[in-house]
């Protein structure tokens, strides 16, 4: 919960900061992206996630045996970036599959304005929904082979579930800027094209929290920042 609150506050601050920047005389796009920017990379150490267990079904044996979705992947992001520091965010598309009665990927990070497709690659119906205040939606029951889509216009965290299969869950993190990364299987991450400057680097994890880190990025430079996620008490 603290992680949720922290990210929500951070995202709100980010919006406020970006809005404040928009009200100032905007820098030209060419000047804001003139440099190639720098790179932030590193590794996030995450505690063992053996606590995540698919909810068993006593009465229903249908479908594949639910696998455990690893919660070790985290999202690393800059907490606030001047709006003038990057080009207009394109209205992109992203995808979260339903495969083997799991959402794939389990964590998806996108920018505002992105439409996420939810294709059903299983042989059973699914019913993707979220009750998040950031984006409340219910795609209803849709059959194998069909795809439902949702556009995300507000920043925040959107837990996603299936109304038919209670063991299915995922997260979509929506940012107002493009400077974030989801860690790979080994916990590594890399954020490219970061405008030169000083930032606070944050981590969002299902499993716990990590202290924010200050990082300074030089044009063409590289910053190495590691994190360690501590399990929430």
């Amino acid at each position: 919960m603290r992680g949720f609150a922290l990210l929500s506050i951070t995202l709100l601050c980010s919006i406020a900061f970006v809005r404040a920047q928009v009200q100032t005389p905007p820098a030209s796009a060419s000047s804001s992206v003139a440099g190639s920017g720098g790179t932030i990379h590193g590794h996030v150490d995450v505690p063992d996630d053996r606590a995540l267990l698919p909810r068993p079904s006593i009465t229903d044996v249908s479908g594949p045996r639910p696998r455990m979705a690893s919660r070790r992947r985290v999202v690393v992001y800059l907490d606030a970036v001047p709006r003038r520091a990057f080009d207009e965010l394109p209205a992109g598309r992203a995808r979260m599959d339903q495969r083997g009665e799991e959402f794939v990927p389990h964590i998806l990070a996108i920018t505002t304005g992105t439409t996420v497709d939810f294709p059903n690659h299983d042989t059973t119906f699914h019913n993707v929904f979220s009750l998040s205040r950031v984006r409340t939606f219910d795609l209803g029951r849709f059959p194998p082979g069909r795809t439902g889509s949702v556009r995300f216009d507000r920043p925040g965290i959107v837990p996603v579930f299936c109304d038919i299969h209670s063991h299915m869950s995922a997260y979509i993190l929506v940012f107002t800027h493009p400077f974030f990364a989801v860690t790979d299987d080994d916990g590594g991450y890399e954020i490219d094209g970061v405008p030169a400057g000083s930032y606070t680097l944050m981590v969002w994890s299902e499993l716990g929290t990590a202290a924010p880190r200050r990082v300074t990025v030089a044009d063409g430079g590289t910053a190495d920042v590691d994190f360690r996620v501590s399990r929430e008490p």
Partner: peptide, 14 residues
């Protein structure tokens, strides 16, 4: 546990 995104291994109790 195996850190891979999806795994059949892991805790035996749910």
């Amino acid at each position: 546990a195996d850190p891979s995104p999806m795994t059949d291994a892991g805790p035996p109790v749910s």
